[in-house]
Simulated scan of single mutants.
Amino acid sequence: MNTGTRLAYLRNKKGMSQPQLAEKLSVSQSTIAMWESNKRKISAEDIVRLADLFAVTTDYLLGRQPKDDGLLVAAHMDDDLTDEQKKEIEEYIEFKKAQYRKQHEKD
């Protein structure tokens, strides 16, 4: 998934139109459309503003995936999860990491 696709996904997830997002960022709607279609690069400053607005990391917007010993872990968790759900996900990630390490120790 590229940056434009991630932006469109986050915007739609928030139930926000392109004009609404444009107004929040003080840019034109056509700028949002061009970002989402990857016809215009998003400035570093705007990436930070978007990350803050959508409560995600800049790495997530840029498509950078955190890794642990070669294992893709997670990019972010949605804010609407309960603490119990977040804990469950974190425990599962730790379980998968342990499985991965155990499997690769044999190699």
Rank of each mutant, 00 (worst) to 15 (best):
L21W: 05
A51S: 12
E45N: 09
D79L: 15
A22Q: 03
K67R: 13
R64L: 06
E91R: 10
V73N: 02
F95H: 11
I93L: 14
E36F: 10
S28E: 02
G70L: 10
M34Q: 15
S17R: 06
L25V: 05
L72N: 05
Y60E: 03
Q99E: 14
S30F: 08
H104P: 09
E94I: 03
Q65R: 12
A74M: 14
G63A: 05
T58E: 15
A51W: 05
P66Y: 07
D80M: 10
D69Q: 10
L72R: 00
P19F: 02
A44V: 08
Q20N: 09
E45A: 14
N38T: 12
S17W: 08
S37G: 06
M77R: 03
S28T: 15
D79N: 15
V56E: 05
Q65E: 12
W35H: 13
T58S: 15
Y92V: 00
R40F: 08
V27E: 01
Q29D: 09
A74H: 04
L53V: 06
D79R: 11
I93K: 09
R101W: 02
S37C: 12
I32F: 08
E88Y: 10
A44M: 06
Q29L: 01
E91M: 09
Q18T: 03
F54D: 00
A22W: 07
K39G: 08
T82G: 08
K67T: 14
L71N: 07
R40G: 05
K102M: 11
M34L: 15
L72K: 00
E88W: 03
P66S: 05
K86N: 02
W35N: 05
D52A: 09
T57N: 07
A74T: 08
Q99V: 09
Y100W: 15
F54L: 11
W35E: 06
E94R: 12
M34E: 13
N38S: 15
R64K: 14
S43A: 09
S30K: 08
E88G: 00
K102R: 13
L71F: 15
D78T: 07
E84H: 00
A74C: 10
R40A: 13
E94S: 11
E94L: 11
N38K: 14
P66G: 08
D52S: 07
D46L: 11
D46W: 01
R64S: 06
T57I: 01
A22C: 09
Y60V: 09
K39Q: 13
I93Q: 11
I32G: 02
A44Q: 08
Q20A: 14
A74R: 09
E36Y: 08
M77Q: 05
T31L: 13
L53S: 05
D46M: 12
I42V: 15
K86Y: 02
Q103F: 12
M34C: 09
K86R: 14
D69R: 06
I93C: 11
Q103R: 15
I32S: 06
D79K: 13
L62H: 03
H76R: 00
D69M: 12
V48A: 11
H104G: 04
Q85D: 10
A98L: 11
K97I: 13
T58C: 12
K67N: 11
M77V: 03
D52E: 11
L71Y: 13
E88V: 03
K39H: 03
F95A: 05
E23I: 02
S37R: 14
Q29G: 06
